[in-house]
Amino acid sequence: MDRGTYIEYHGRPAVRFERTYGHPVERVWEAVATPEGLAHWFPSAVALEPYVGGKITFSGDPNMEGTTGEVLEFEPPRRLAFSWSGDELRFELEAVDGGCRFTLINVLEARDTAARNAAGWTVCLAELGGHLAGEPVAGPHSESATPWRPVYEEYVASGMPSGAPIPGEEDEHGEQGEHGE
Rank of each mutant, 00 (worst) to 15 (best):
A115S: 07
G54F: 07
S158K: 11
D171M: 12
A14R: 02
A14N: 02
R116F: 07
W148S: 05
E88A: 11
N63F: 13
N63M: 13
A95F: 06
V151W: 04
T68W: 05
F91L: 10
E169C: 07
E49N: 05
Y51E: 13
G22T: 13
T68P: 00
R3P: 00
G139I: 02
A119L: 01
E75S: 15
S59K: 11
E70D: 12
P165G: 12
V52C: 13
V52H: 07
H173I: 01
E75P: 00
E127P: 00
A31I: 01
T122L: 04
T103H: 07
G177Q: 09
G163P: 05
G130Q: 06
L48I: 08
E75K: 13
H10T: 13
G139R: 03
V25L: 11
G60T: 10
W84Q: 05
F91V: 12
T122C: 06
T146I: 14
G66D: 12
V28P: 03
F91H: 11
R111D: 14
P140F: 03
Y9C: 06
H141G: 10
S83Y: 06
Y21W: 07
R3C: 07
L38H: 03
D87M: 06
E49W: 06
S144I: 06
T20K: 12
V137G: 00
T103Y: 07
E65V: 11
V28I: 08
T103M: 08
T67S: 15
E170D: 13
N106S: 13
E65P: 05
G99H: 07
G130I: 08
V151H: 03
P136K: 11
A14P: 02
E73V: 13
E170G: 12
T34F: 05
E88D: 08
A126W: 02
W121H: 04
S142D: 12
P136F: 03
V156I: 10
A110D: 15
T57E: 15
N63E: 15
E92I: 04
